[in-house]
Design a protein around this nucleic acid. Structure first.
Lengths: 214, 214
DNA sequence: TCGCGCCTCCCCCGCGCGGGGGAGGAAAAA
DNA sequence: TTTTTCCTCCCCCGCGCGGGGGAGGCGCGA
């Protein structure tokens, strides 16, 4: 039997905190080494206790889960973080994921599933609640609802607009006149309601019309 | 007890296909309604059998899993798709996710976990194998390795450069001279090796220096 | 003390680009 | 057949921007 996973619970609701601790203490392989009632206290506790993982409630007074997570990630990046939140999936999940937070679960999760997630996160995996994952995956998928309708030619021009090519160069590559390209570009800017080429390309990326291609 | 989930298995290796079918048949709530040995046959079978979900091997002769998945998604979008693949996570996972494939598991998955994933997918959730999810999440995370070193001020200017603001407007917002902004911009373009503002912003997004913010 | 990086500001030049028009032809829809 | 959409091409104008210089002040580390 390996060393138990040392975890810290940070939640402003005592009943939730205690309940969570009680449930998790029943699990072999887990050791609740501390509790905290807000982000500020939790941050200090994490630094002192050096747990393997911190369960943090997202909404808290004084210092919320997001703030704490970002601060903790900065000061002690080796400590894993699992975010807890209510039933609705907050949009901040994307900021948190972008910041490298490994776990994100809703409070309606089954204890067994939470334990599973804790193990996954401690072992270096990412664990997202199904609802969260769905949302994240959905974000990855291009919006199939295209509020803007670009013609095939315009879409083609738009892709070239995301390259360093000038309109003249684009024209040459497509074997059409520069004025034609400029004409398409004007229509594209109007359709996308963007003031210039740079913004149009950015907007197009957001809309999934074109991709970065890495 | 609700109606069992009707599933179709598509894999070119008979032993894998049969084994999978046998294991899944043991599960109550699941009904293996068909098997196919490649994408072309599988596609026809799916259209005829109208299963709830199709388990598709990614690598197959004649028509591979990706082709089949895309074709099936087009013809019968209500049929869920779960992709099976070897141990390594293929880069095509991103294309598949982008195409709206709901599931993606590796063949080393535990049967119980697979059953769990099947249920999840049929119920409208997305199910990705932990390794796959890790890779996907990793893609979402900005690269922390910054090969280019911009000064704090330059980074600030760069963020403004991703907005419709002109240099003069940026200058006003920062309460500095327009020439100063232009000067920073010139340095930024040089450091990023980008020919113009649009490319610089795109490159910055790719490098994770700035985010789209949606 | 002497650099060196950073922030600040200035000049000139040329051109790419956005915005305002218009026009013709081909193909698809009405 | 008429109308509409799309692609093609043209004009003018103003200005934002990229590229080439230079310069002064400030703080920090050598």
């Amino acid at each position: 039997m390996p060393d138990p996973i040392r975890l810290l619970i940070v939640d402003d609701h005592a009943v939730v905190r205690k309940g969570l601790a009680m449930v998790l203490r029943l699990e072999s392989g887990l050791e609740v080494v501390g509790e905290a009632e807000n982000g500020r206290v939790g941050l200090e506790a994490a630094k002192n206790l050096q747990p393997d993982i911190v369960l943090v409630d997202l909404v808290m007074p004084e210092m919320d889960g997001q703030e704490m997570a970002l601060a903790l990630r900065k000061s002690n990046p080796q400590i894993k973080i699992m975010m807890l939140t209510g039933t609705e999936v907050d949009d901040r999940v994307f900021d948190l994921i972008a910041a490298g937070i490994e776990g994100y679960v809703l409070k309606n999760i089954e204890p067994a599933e939470l334990v599973h997630g804790i193990h996954a996160v401690v072992h270096g995996e990412a664990y997202l609640h199904p609802d969260v994952m769905k949302k994240v995956v959905g974000r990855l998928q291009p919006q199939q609802t295209a509020p803007v309708s670009l013609t095939p030619r315009e879409l083609e021009i738009l892709e070239y607009m995301s390259t360093p090519n000038t309109y003249k160069q684009i024209a040459n590559k497509l074997s059409i006149g520069e004025e034609t390209v400029r004409s398409h570009a004007k229509n594209i800017l109007e359709k996308l309601k963007q003031p210039n080429r740079a913004q149009a390309v950015l907007a197009a990326v957001k809309m999934g019309l074109i991709d970065l291609g890495d």
